[in-house]
Simulated assay, not measured.
Amino acid sequence: MLKEFVKLNHYKFAKEASDWEEAVRMSCECLEVDGTVEANYKDDIIACVKKYGPYIVIMPNVAMPHCQECAKGVHKTAIAFMKLKKPVSFEPGNPEMDARLFFTLASCNPDQHLENMTKLSELLMNEKAVAALLEAETPEDLIKIQETCLEG
Rank of each mutant, 00 (worst) to 15 (best):
C67F: 10
K83W: 05
H66R: 02
H75I: 08
C70S: 12
I45V: 13
A78M: 12
K42N: 07
P54W: 00
F81K: 04
K42A: 15
D44M: 09
M82K: 05
Y52E: 14
F81P: 09
K83A: 13
K50F: 01
G73K: 02
M82P: 15
H66G: 06
M59D: 14
K72E: 14
L84R: 08
K51T: 11
A63K: 00
K51C: 07
T77R: 02
A71Q: 10
V49E: 01
Q68K: 14
K72C: 10
G73T: 07
Y52K: 10
A47P: 11
M64L: 09
M64N: 04
V74F: 02
G73S: 07
M64I: 06
V49H: 00
K51L: 08
P54R: 00
K83Y: 07
I79M: 13
K76H: 14
C70M: 13
K72R: 12
D43G: 10
A78W: 06
C70K: 14
G53Q: 03
V74S: 05
I45H: 01
V49P: 03
K51G: 07
K51I: 03
H66T: 06
K72H: 13
K50P: 06
A71R: 05
K42W: 01
M82T: 12
D44A: 12
P65M: 03
D43T: 07
P65G: 06
P60N: 04
M59N: 11
C48M: 12
K51S: 11
V62T: 08
E69I: 12
A47Q: 11
N61S: 15
H66K: 01
C67L: 09
M82E: 05
P54C: 04
N61D: 15
V57F: 02
Q68W: 11
M64P: 06
A63Q: 04
K72W: 09
A80I: 05
I58E: 05
P60K: 01
A63R: 00
A71W: 06
V62F: 01
Y52L: 14
D43L: 02
K50M: 02
V57D: 04
D44V: 10
C67N: 11
E69H: 13
M64K: 02
F81Y: 09
Y52R: 08
A80E: 07
G53V: 04
V49C: 03
I56N: 03
I46F: 00
A80G: 15
V57H: 02
F81Q: 05
A63T: 08
I56M: 08
A47D: 12
A71V: 10
K83E: 10
I58T: 13
A78Q: 14
G53S: 05
Y55H: 06
D44Y: 05
K51W: 04
I79E: 09
C70T: 10
V49D: 01
K42F: 02
K72V: 15
H75S: 13
I45K: 00
A80S: 15
F81D: 06
C48Y: 09
M64S: 05
V49S: 00
M59W: 03
